[in-house]
């Protein structure tokens, strides 16, 4: 049962307020609170990570590996954090398993329409780091610790949005 109306930021625009002739009590005036909009379009570059997004657009999940020490990154890194060398690209297996997960029933404004959604970190045998993704095909109303270790496979959006969500995972 709803007992509280939601607070929203729409409503009237106020153009004037009363001001008393006597200024003595003004320190007790209630604060004026207004809505201020703020929006920006950025020219964002993925820089050295660009091949990852090109890979997603072509149905491939790319990681990087260090030619010097062999450390393998499940989320790409342009340089190896272990030995400092420039890394090279390799194709990650499209089958992995769930390292950990959560179900978000609330979230940031941008993702509220998606709630509830499942976040998961994916692990691969022989790959040193993980990959953050959305997990679909499980019941978000019935999360279970048993999902840790679940074998999953990658699926790709047909129309790329050039976001890491161009790939997501589903149970195998």
């Amino acid at each position: 049962m709803i007992k509280k109306l939601p607070e929203t930021l729409d409503g009237s625009v106020l153009f004037n307020v009363p001001l008393p002739a006597d200024l003595a009590g003004l320190n007790e005036l209630a604060p004026i609170i207004i809505k201020q909009h703020y929006a920006v379009d950025y020219l964002h570059t993925f820089g050295q990570d660009s091949p990852f997004f090109a890979g997603l657009a072509n149905g491939k999940l790319l990681g990087t590996e260090c030619p010097q020490c062999g450390y393998r990154y499940g989320t790409p890194k342009g340089h190896c954090t272990q030995c400092g060398a420039r890394t090279r690209w390799f194709e990650l297996p499209q089958e992995g398993q769930v390292h950990t997960f959560t179900v978000c029933y609330f979230g940031s404004e941008e993702f509220l329409p998606d709630c509830p959604f499942v976040l998961a970190l994916i692990e691969w045998e022989g790959v040193n780091t993980l990959f953050l993704t959305r997990l679909l095909g499980v019941d978000p109303q019935a999360p279970s610790l048993d999902w840790v270790g679940m074998p999953v496979r990658a699926r790709f959006r047909r129309n790329s949005k050039f976001k890491p969500t161009d790939v997501y995972f589903v149970p195998r």
Partner: peptide, 16 residues
């Protein structure tokens, strides 16, 4: 972009 929400990140940590 995957679902940026700190409570979600910490929840993944504690699940593990």
């Amino acid at each position: 972009p995957v679902g940026g929400f700190y409570s979600g990140y910490y929840a993944m940590m504690v699940v593990r």
